[in-house]
C-alpha cells in the first residue's frame, strides 16, 4: 500500500516486509516510506509489531534467535539486509534510543564518548571532548551536567538519563534515530523536555518514534503510521491521520475503541 507521493526526500523505504519469530509471523507485508528530516510516529496497540518494525531498521532483530526478516528495507537506496551491508556500520548510521533509559555504568562523559571511541571518530582527546560537549549540548543536557561529567550516568534522574542516551546516540553522528517509546518510563515534565528535544533534532536527523501515546504522536510527528495485528493499516500526514483517518480501524483506535 504505497502512499500517495508527497514532495519529500525518502530516507528509508520498506517494501513487503515480513518478520517471523520462529514459526510466528509478527509482521506481514509492510510498505512504508520514511521521509528525511521528519519525525515519523509508529502507533498502534501493544503487540501490533511497531517495535518489531523499528528494530528492523537497524537490524537489532539480528541478535534475537530465530528471527527472520523477508522483503526489502533500503536506506538511501541501499538494501540494509544485503550481504554487502555491514551491521556495525549500519548501526553507526542508524542510532537507537530505548524504552527504559539504559546508560552504561560509566561516567556521563564515558557514556557519550563510547560510540565515537569504538568508531575511531576522534583523532585526539580534544576532538573527543568536542564531540561529547556538542552531543550533550544538542541533547539539551549540557547545562545540567557541565560540572559533573565524571559522575556516573546512573546518578542522573530518569529524564536526564534518557537525554544522556539520546546524546550517546547522536555522538556517533547517525543519519537516523530510532526511538522505542522513549518517554514511557518518564514523568510528564521529563516527557515534555524529550518531546521538545525531538522537535529540535528533526533538523539534523531523520527520526522514527514508536509511541503508545496518541497525544505524543500528534505533538511530535509530521508523519504517522498505524499498525494493527502485524499489518500496516494506514500512513499519512499526522494531521490527516488524527483528523480524517481513511480506515475504520484507525478511526476506532484514535477514538479509543481499540487499544
Amino acid at each position: 500500500m504505497p502512499e500517495s507521493r508527497i514532495n519529500l526526500h525518502v530516507k528509508a523505504l520498506a517494501r513487503a516486509v515480513n518478520v517471523f519469530y520462529g514459526e510466528k509471523q509478527a509482521l506481514s507485508g509492510i510498505n512504508l516510506d520514511i521521509p528525511e528530516n521528519h519525525v515519523t510516529a509508529l502507533i498502534g496497540p501493544s503487540g501490533c509489531g511497531k517495535s518489531t518494525f523499528l528494530r528492523c531498521l537497524n537490524r537489532m532483530n539480528d541478535i534475537i534467535d530465530g528471527c527472520r526478516v523477508e522483503g526489502s528495507i533500503t536506506i538511501d537506496g541501499a538494501d540494509i539486509y544485503s550481504k554487502e551491508q555491514d551491521v556495525v556500520q549500519l548501526r553507526a548510521r542508524v542510532g537507537m534510543v530505548f524504552q527504559k533509559p539504559n546508560p552504561f555504568p560509566k561516567s556521563i562523559y564515558e557514556n557519550v564518548a563510547y560510540g565515537p571511541r569504538i568508531h575511531g571518530m576522534a583523532a585526539n582527546k580534544k576532538q573527543l571532548d568536542d564531540i561529547v560537549i556538542d552531543s550533550l549540548t544538542r541533547a539539551g543536557l549540557i547545562n545540567e551536567v557541565n560540572d559533573r561529567l565524571d559522575a556516573p550516568g546512573t546518578s542522573l534522574s530518569g529524564g536526564q538519563q534518557q537525554r544522556l542516551c539520546i546524546a550517546r546516540a547522536i555522538a556517533v553522528r547517525p543519519e537516523m534515530i530510532l526511538m522505542d517509546e522513549p518517554c514511557s518510563a518518564l514523568d510528564p515534565i521529563a516527557t515534555a523536555r524529550i518531546e521538545e528535544l525531538i522537535d529540535e533534532l528533526r533538523d539534523n536527523f531523520t527520526i522514527v518514534i514508536v509511541t503508545h501515546s496518541m497525544q505524543q504522536a500528534a505533538r511530535v510527528s509530521q508523519r504517522t503510521a498505524f499498525f494493527h495485528l502485524g499489518e500496516l493499516v494506514e500512513t499519512g500526514a499526522t494531521e490527516q491521520i488524527f483528523t480524517n483517518p481513511r480506515d475504520s480501524r484507525t478511526q476506532a483506535y484514535i477514538t479509543g475503541r481499540i487499544g
Partner: peptide
C-alpha cells in the same frame, strides 16, 4: 548483566 546494556552498545555499532 541487563540485556538493555548490551542492546545499547550494539545499537551504537559496537561489535
Amino acid at each position: 548483566v541487563p540485556g538493555s546494556l548490551r542492546e545499547a552498545s550494539l545499537s551504537l555499532g559496537a561489535t
